[in-house]
């Protein structure tokens, strides 16, 4: 009875204060080691299976082509973004100047029940990760940090129903809100005069978690109801959420966490 009451009170107290409970910190810190070990075993098993399945020569060739393809895609995306955002070149330059170095992290765990789309990273507050920091990988936007423990942090994926990211259709600079649908992303609140097309690339707008221009996905279906104030579009995310591994945690305002300079 005492144990049950204590657990309930600890949890309710953490809910009231908004800080992680002792239980959450302890479980998060211990679990990250178990999850890291499991992730390492999984990675090793996956690597072993791949090397057995593919002849070494073919695997090397494949890897080289993948790298080249990825480089070309990134270059293509960068050039498209530069072309589309030419009038805002000065603003983009400032943005790039403010873009601080990211924190590399590895995905070691998923939401235990699957009703929300979250993942756990193996880096936490001790590494400098803060709530609302953005998380990206080499394909685009992954999500944002919603909880941090000393040794781990939780990312709300951009496909979660509770996720909302300011977004822009790259071709026409039309604004919208990218909302998760649990499996993909829906671009909502796009003005009716926007001429959306299937295949349009959707990128982030400037927000509290991301700088502008990071890829969210590609439009695959357009919902243009007659008489409605806004149109919407279904977006296929550019990130493969089923095989997330290494990510980068970025903060659009890295200076915000620094103490104020008394000389200023």
């Amino acid at each position: 009875m005492i144990v049950a009451s204590s657990i309930a009170l600890i949890q309710l107290d953490s809910l009231k204060t908004g800080k992680p409970s002792v239980i959450a910190v302890a479980v998060g810190s211990v679990a990250v080691y178990a999850q890291s070990a499991t992730a390492a075993v999984q990675g090793a098993a996956r690597g072993a299976a791949a090397s057995v399945a593919d002849a070494p020569k073919l695997a090397a060739q494949n890897q080289a082509l993948r790298e080249r393809n990825r480089g070309l895609r990134l270059e293509n995306a960068r050039l498209r973004e530069a072309l589309a955002a030419a009038p805002d070149a000065a603003a983009i330059k400032d943005t790039n100047a403010n873009f601080g170095p990211g924190i590399e992290a590895t995905v070691v765990g998923y939401d235990p029940e699957g009703l929300s789309r979250t993942v756990t990273l193996d880096r936490g507050a001790l590494a400098g990760i803060k709530s609302n920091d953005g998380v990206i990988d080499d394909d685009g936007v992954v999500g944002r940090i919603v909880a941090t423990e000393p040794l781990s942090s939780t990312v709300l994926l951009v496909i979660d129903g509770a996720s909302k990211v300011p977004a822009i259709v790259q071709r026409g600079r039309w604004w919208g809100i990218a909302t998760g649908t649990n499996n993909s992303v829906k671009l909502e609140y796009v003005s009716q005069d926007a001429k959306l097309k299937v295949g349009d690339v959707v990128v982030t707008g400037e927000g509290r978690s991301f700088h502008a221009g990071l890829s969210i996905g590609t439009v695959t279906r357009i919902d243009h109801p007659e008489g409605a104030l806004y149109q919407a579009a279904l977006v296929t995310p550019s990130v493969a959420f089923g095989r997330l591994s290494h990510v980068l945690v970025v903060s659009p305002n890295p200076g915000a966490a620094k103490p104020a300079d008394p000389s200023e």
Binding site: Q11, L12, S14, V27, D111, T118, V146, A147
Partner: peptide, 13 residues
């Protein structure tokens, strides 16, 4: 349940 909340991160209690 506490363990699950700790691991989920965004579910409160």
């Amino acid at each position: 349940g506490s363990c699950e909340d700790a691991l989920a991160g965004s579910t409160g209690v």
